[in-house]
Amino acid sequence: MHMKKKSKKFSKSDRKLLIVPLAMTAAMVIFLSALFFPVISDLTSIGAMFFSDKQVDYSKSYENIFVPTNNDSDTIDASKVEFPTINKQFGELKIEKRDVNTKLFFGDASVPLRNGVGIYAGSFIPGYGRTILVAGHNNTYFNGLKNVKKGDIVKINTSYGNYKYKVTDTKIYNANSKKSYDLSAKEENLIMYTCYPFDQLGITEKRFFVYAKKISGPKIVGLYD
């Protein structure tokens, strides 16, 4: 039997060997991403280690207006308060018993959360008498939040006063649940939150909330004419 070598050119069947698996791979990636998003997000988080954006020096991308003070008085006039604008560090937040010691920003976008913890701009600052909603990453500055218990003391130091809050409750809610906060509340309340479960990589649907009420620190007065 005489055997003849086959041509080295790509035949129609060879092209099918390329196109078919390529198309199947693309379809698989799309299907799995849609179906198993939380699982895929773990892989992409790992992938982010290799395909990460260019490194940026975030420490230079914010303004710090925090100057420690000894003011533990009952009140402070609004004219003596430098109200922070978005992305400014204006204080520090500590939960000493739980190894939380971090910079406090106004605003909770990338810059604040990469450098510390941030107050949602649709909430208010300590002393204002309203809701203070603080976000932080569970793998960085709010890593210790998972250990917080009722009765723990939270200290927030700002340039205009030093505040203490006592933890009253912890709860787990879905991120899109509106039961976890009340931005219209008329009394001062501190809410801190981070992603839950704490050790899950990628996007999580739930958040761990810590609720605390104010026990000391100057009330900002003279806010309204």
Binding site: A109, Y120, L133, N138, N139, Y193, L201, I203, R207
Partner: peptide, 8 residues
Amino acid sequence: NVIKKTGA
């Protein structure tokens, strides 16, 4: 979103 992504 009032409540932000605060994981990885």
